[in-house]
């Protein structure tokens, strides 16, 4: 898969959640550890379902986990 423009704060959020491991997060979301690793590195864009599940694990809104910098720029330009 090509590198995605979507950025994420999963590593930071894991650290803040008592240093949750990738394996623990993967188990709670229902994907493999390798998928969490790929998402963290920005090499794989998860589906909306998995993105919401990740946000729910950390108890934060989706936009606190994922960001799309180009979209933010476009929104600011329109305002």
């Amino acid at each position: 898969m090509a590198r995605t423009p979507i950025t994420n704060r999963i590593r930071r959020l894991r650290f803040d959640a008592d240093e949750m491991t990738q394996a623990d997060l993967a188990k709670r979301v229902g994907v493999t550890r390798q998928t969490i690793l790929a998402i963290e590195k920005g090499k794989y864009s998860p589906s909306l379902e998995v993105a919401f599940k990740i946000a729910a694990v950390f108890g934060v809104p989706l936009e606190e986990v994922f960001a799309y910098p180009d979209a933010d720029l476009e929104t600011r330009e329109k305002c």
Binding site: T32, A38, E49, V50
Partner: peptide
């Protein structure tokens, strides 16, 4: 063996 996830299916 783990269950196939969405990334496995896409690949």
């Amino acid at each position: 063996p783990e269950d196939e996830d969405e990334r496995d299916r896409r690949i």
